Measured scan of single mutants.
Amino acid sequence: IRCIGVSNRDFVEGMSGGTWVDVVLEHGGCVTVMAQDKPTVDIELVTTTVSNMAEVRSYCYEASISDMASDSRCPTQGEAYLDKQSDTQYVCKRTLVDRGWGNGCGLFGKGSLVTCAKFTCSKKMTGKSIQPENLEYRIMLSVHGSQHSGMIVNDTGYETDENRAKVEVTPNSPRAEATLGGFGSLGLDCEPRTGLDFSDLYYLTMNNKHWLVHKEWFHDIPLPWHAGADTGTPHWNNKEALVEFKDAHAKRQTVVVLGSQEGAVHTALAGALEAEMDGAKGKLFSGHLKCRLKMDKLRLKGVSYSLCTAAFTFTKVPAETLHGTVTVEVQYAGTDGPCKIPVQMAVDMQTLTPVGRLITANPVITESTENSKMMLELDPPFGDSYIVIGVGDKKITHHWHRSGSTIGKAFEATVRGAKRMAVLGDTAWDFGSVGGVFNSLGKGIHQIFGAAFKSLFGGMSWFSQILIGTLLVWLGLNTKNGSISLTCLALGGVMIFLSTAVSA
């Protein structure tokens, strides 16, 4: 259960009878995928790494000078000259100064003066180019299975845990398959586009800190620079940016070097996208990844198990997540596992009318040892309800109150669905055939309105939902006002479609 501690969480529900669903994975976010007769899966884009970055340009932001020398000439005696002028490691300046009897010249006039100092770069920052084909995306998957609280967001041991898996995709191999043991396998067909235009970005490294910066900004930095990788004795261009020549006297000129420019660069980098280094690879934390999940090989585990009949206890007080759902960790005293956990939410304890829904599909106890633990997640209705676990006299209950409203949740879900469709863009549509167009249209309606429909009408039977949709269509056909007619027709059509397409 990876997503319960992530604030940016998206719930995606598969269409009834569908074998695939489109998701948008982004750094700092987590996606929970639910479908009829399929286990619930949490998917998170953990890291995006980039390798084989080529150094484009380096800037010196802290330097020192040494070996200063000057040469001067009297008027009419030609130009002052130093051998160091031809050495690229030196920074030199030529000027004219007033000369006369007082400073060793027989004539009054302008004399030539040249001053040089050896330039040494102490600290530099480097910009590297990123090729999209060198990106690698690491995705962690977790099935809502027989897990306890100690396994949440624990990325170790996934090789031997059938509840978890790690997959890596690249532009050259965008397809992967996550093996989930008894739950089958989940196929991923990803489109490795981060949403960032790397043709316009460089990877900047300064003092063990890293950013993504725009090329134009990078090339306009007014500091000494050299092109390409460091060859040991780089040729620094624009050395004068960190060196200041003071007022010249008759035979000498003082040279000083400016202080470190790291603070000024940090100020200019305010708002830039931060990154990290992992050995020789860069780690990015921006952008998104679009994936199509193929769920035809994914299956529920323990459908044929019998119900657990022994007593359950709450190991922890049920807690609310950031998303309005409830996490419950229970301990089973029996030894008759594997068995299914009898769990439901009810409005009252007399009729036990089921409300809400299970995020953890078909929760089971897989071990036959005593005191096995299991964590599950529920989506309670707004208002008061009861969490009921167990059967008969051994069942345990917990009162729950959820604040908020169904309308607010439906609106929030619609906005999130619209954002998801905007990110998917043209990849969500198939114009290759008439059937493809209608299929894409259905998927689009489901992406945007599916979660809201589930919130508003999830407790009704599909037949009642179709009746309401048919009534809206009838009202649309018999209303003389054009805008009201079109609105009723659209709402009725969407409702009829979703009542037959969205899983219960």
Rank of each mutant, 00 (worst) to 15 (best):
L113P: 00
E162G: 15
E136G: 11
F245T: 04
A227M: 15
L475R: 01
L300K: 05
R299L: 01
V265L: 13
V114M: 09
V33W: 06
D348R: 00
T500L: 01
A63G: 13
H214A: 08
D247T: 09
P171F: 07
D189H: 07
E329L: 02
A248L: 01
A418L: 02
T313G: 10
C488E: 08
G104A: 10
F183S: 10
E274H: 09
G436K: 05
G109S: 07
N172F: 06
I4S: 07
T233L: 14
V31E: 02
M375Y: 14
Q253W: 15
I389A: 09
L486T: 01
G469T: 11
L186I: 15
K316F: 03
G459H: 13
V213D: 09
L25S: 09
D67Q: 08
D197Y: 05
T231A: 10
P39T: 02
G404R: 00
F11I: 11
N207Y: 07
K124P: 00
D10R: 00
G458F: 12
T205R: 08
E159W: 06
Q147M: 11
Y332F: 05
P192S: 15
D200G: 14
T170W: 08
L352Q: 12
K215R: 14
L477Y: 02
T156R: 14
R175T: 05
Y90H: 12
G263I: 09
T233N: 15
G5P: 00
G157C: 03
G459T: 02
D22A: 03
M53V: 05
E377A: 01
V12M: 13
M460L: 11
R252T: 02
W462F: 13
S464Q: 15
A268G: 03
E216M: 10
D161C: 00
D155T: 00
N478T: 06
V343C: 15
L378T: 02
I407C: 06
S455C: 13
A241C: 04
A311C: 08
L491P: 07
I407S: 04
K123M: 15
K118P: 00
D230I: 13
V6I: 15
C488K: 03
G187W: 06
T321Y: 09
R9F: 07
A69Q: 15
Y305T: 02
T397N: 14
D348S: 15
Y305H: 13
R299H: 11
R292E: 01
M125G: 02
T40L: 01
Q465P: 08
L322C: 04
T369M: 04
L186A: 01
N237H: 15
H148T: 12
D247M: 15
E26T: 01
D98V: 06
E177V: 06
L489V: 15
F457W: 12
Q131R: 09
A490R: 02
D197C: 07
L471F: 15
V23Y: 05
K409S: 04
N8D: 14
P192T: 14
I65N: 02
K316R: 14
T88M: 10
D87L: 01
F382P: 06
Y158I: 02
K290V: 02
V364M: 14
R357C: 04
F108L: 10
C190N: 09
N172C: 09
G187I: 05
A361E: 04
E412M: 12
W236I: 04
E55T: 15
I1G: 01
E168G: 04
P342F: 08
V328N: 06
L441K: 05
D197K: 07
G29L: 15
V243C: 15
S51E: 09
A272K: 11
S112D: 10
L212P: 02
T360V: 03
L456I: 14
E191S: 12
C339K: 07
K246N: 06
V326S: 00
L322K: 04
F453Y: 13
V391Y: 00
R73E: 10
E26L: 02
P224W: 11
A422G: 00
Q253V: 05
E244W: 03
D83R: 00
M295E: 05
P192Q: 02
C74T: 03
L135F: 13
Y59I: 05
F198H: 03
G287R: 00
Y90L: 07
T88P: 14
R164E: 12
G417Q: 11
A275K: 01
N172K: 05
G302N: 04
P75K: 07
L378V: 13
L273M: 15
Y386M: 13
I445Y: 10
T32Y: 03
T95K: 12
L82I: 15
P75G: 04
K123P: 00
N238M: 09
S70I: 10
N362D: 11
K301G: 00
I448T: 07
Y332E: 05
K290A: 05
G102K: 03
P342N: 09
P234A: 12
G492T: 01
T397D: 01
T325Y: 10
T470N: 05
T313A: 15
V23F: 13
V153G: 04
D200K: 03
M140I: 05
D384E: 12
H401C: 10
I496R: 02
H399C: 07
E320N: 06
G157E: 15
S185T: 13
G435R: 14
V41K: 04
G157D: 02
N371E: 12
D393N: 14
R299I: 07
N238W: 07
H210N: 12
F438T: 00
P75C: 08
S129M: 14
I396L: 14
V494C: 09
W225C: 06
G104T: 03
G150S: 01
I4Q: 09
G109R: 01
V256W: 14
D189W: 11
C291Y: 11
W225Q: 09
G111Q: 04
H249R: 10
L424R: 05
D393M: 14
E191Q: 10
F245D: 07
W462Y: 14
V41D: 05
S112K: 01
A270S: 09
Q350K: 14
G111Y: 05
T115E: 08
E62F: 13
N238A: 03
A272R: 06
M140L: 15
D87G: 13
N362H: 10
S483T: 14
I152C: 03
V364A: 06
A176M: 10
T179E: 08
F245H: 06
G444T: 15
L82N: 05
I407L: 10
